[in-house]
Computed example of a mutant assay.
Amino acid sequence: MELVMRRRSRSDLIFDLINYACLTIGVLLILYPLYFVLIASISDPNAIYAGEVYILPKHLTFDGYSRILQDKLIWSGYANSILYAVVGTAISVSITLMAAYPLSRKDLYGKTFITWFLLFTTFFNGGLIPTYLLIKSLGMVNTMWALVLPGAAGVFNIIIVRTFIQNTIPDEMREAAAMDGCSDTTFFVRIVLPLSKPVIAVMVLFHTVGFWNSFFDALIYLNSDKLWPLQLVLRNILVQNQVDAKVLVDVDSYLAKMRVTELIKYGVIIISSGPLLVLYPFLQRYFVKGVLIGSIKG
């Protein structure tokens, strides 16, 4: 018996070691690119081109960050991204919750038809040109609303929240509240919302990440660079090497401008990743619970 237990323990140890090794490799594969961008943003571009930057920065320099602080377009894009993410997330989460709660009720008339109607929109849409014409006819081109309103309600998110409410808040609780004179609105505000904090945190994270990383809608609908989000500014720097000329006014040669542009690229990537890295730890404890209950149960 002791021999069997000893063999089982040894096999368990080997299994754990393999798991930890695989997880460690996975973590390194995920974290190293971000770490490389961080050390590249404070390294001499010549050392990066020469392949000398692996673990530690070479020829430490903060020239890229100092020039980022001088670029008004980057900081206006940063402010715009924060504004779009906050406003868009507030609108999207509100619409998602108000759509999901009625669908979670068994007494909603036409519930099946409404659900299938919503699902139909996930398979078919008007396409880019009709959507642009619609946005233009509504007068939303070159405004913030072209970015936050068209995709405010996601069917996938509505289904997740609906399933969460169905499996977390029993009908008996609503019936007991109704017997005490509680209206549907009061029940939704005072009972459903407080008990739905995990899935609300998931929705906040989903929508915030979506708005923060989005640049295509801004590329299509925004004409003024003063309204550009940070990701569109970053796209122009990465793809087209477009940096504000005022930032490079003291750089003479073309090669020197290219080196400084490389530093700015890496620096802007780090700066643009900061808010999401700060936000996630506060929502992480709700994230797993909300996703599992909202998407697997039921």
Rank of each mutant, 00 (worst) to 15 (best):
V161G: 03
P281M: 06
A79W: 06
A152N: 06
V141F: 01
D184G: 15
D71W: 11
Y65W: 12
T61K: 05
F156L: 09
F215C: 12
P45T: 01
V251D: 08
T143F: 09
H207Y: 15
I293D: 01
V288K: 02
D171A: 13
K58S: 05
I14A: 13
I91M: 11
M258N: 08
N236K: 06
Y266G: 07
F211W: 01
N80H: 09
K58C: 08
A201S: 15
V148N: 07
E52A: 09
D225E: 14
Q166I: 12
K136T: 05
S9A: 13
F215Q: 07
S81C: 06
S137W: 01
Y32A: 04
P102T: 10
V199W: 02
L234K: 01
L292C: 09
L97M: 15
V192E: 06
D12V: 02
V249H: 04
Y35C: 01
F15P: 00
W75R: 07
Y84W: 06
V251F: 01
L31V: 15
Y132G: 05
E175I: 08
S137D: 03
V155W: 05
P275L: 10
P57C: 04
L234T: 14
D71Q: 06
N19E: 03
Y109Q: 09
Y54C: 10
N241S: 13
G110M: 10
V37M: 10
T122P: 00
R285W: 02
I14C: 07
V93S: 09
I55H: 01
S224Q: 13
D252K: 12
T186Q: 02
